[in-house]
Amino acid sequence: MPTASIHALVHDCAADPAAVPRVASPVAESDRAPAGPVFYPAAASTPRILVLGLGNDILTDDAVGLLAVRELRAGLAGRHPLPIDVCETTEMGLALLDFLVGYQTVILVDAIQTGRAPVGTVHELDAPALRRLAGVTPHFLGVGETLALGRQLGLPMPTRVLILAIEVADPFTVGTTLTPPLQAALPAILGRLWNLVLELADPWDSDEVPGRCPSCCGQKQEPMNISRRRLA
């Protein structure tokens, strides 16, 4: 199965920002992705790193993963090219396979509600939780199974997957604006994401100011100690 053809499916991708649904206006006139030729990079030029935002853009805080990567993309635009693709999708389960194939490293940005941390907290989820297949109900296909499935089918799957799960307040009400506490936490969340991306995009251009978040506040931020975790 050639990698390029798998990428043909990725219509919500960063390569065409116009194709990305916008939160502010859920029905964008530019919603239709270009049909015909595949605009996604071919296998040979596929960047090593994918930052993938997940969520539902009309379910209040559920959109935070989409918003965060959108800001990241805006921040990366026009800069020295980093080997990074930034995508967003409202899909889940098996559909994620189409996104993950061909990358070495994937950062997933999503909403989470544990009820045990303040809104806006960024949980960095542990790789072993993904690796295990045991005890998982087969109703929805999780990231762990998606990776296992891809590998079993002989597809080039990422060797490292990091999940940034953002604690949210309300992911159940239909709406297009974040709740105030999450909105307030957004700059810090973006700073964290930005740091992580720069850290992973090795080698990054040393002329760039490390830890600076150009997309939201423009403030210099202390680099955060983010551990890298590997998947087997």
């Binding site: 997940l54 969520g55 539902n56 379910l59 559920d62 409202t90 899909e91 889940m92 389960g93 994620l96 997933l108 999503d110 909403a111 989470i112 989820l125 998982v136 109900t137 109703h139 929805f140 296909l141 999780g142 990231v143 998606t146 999940i163 799960a165 992911p171 159940f172």
Partner: peptide, 10 residues
């Protein structure tokens, strides 16, 4: 209602 972290059904 949600997409969630993909995506086990607890």
């Amino acid at each position: 209602a949600t997409h969630s972290l993909p995506g086990h059904l607890p």
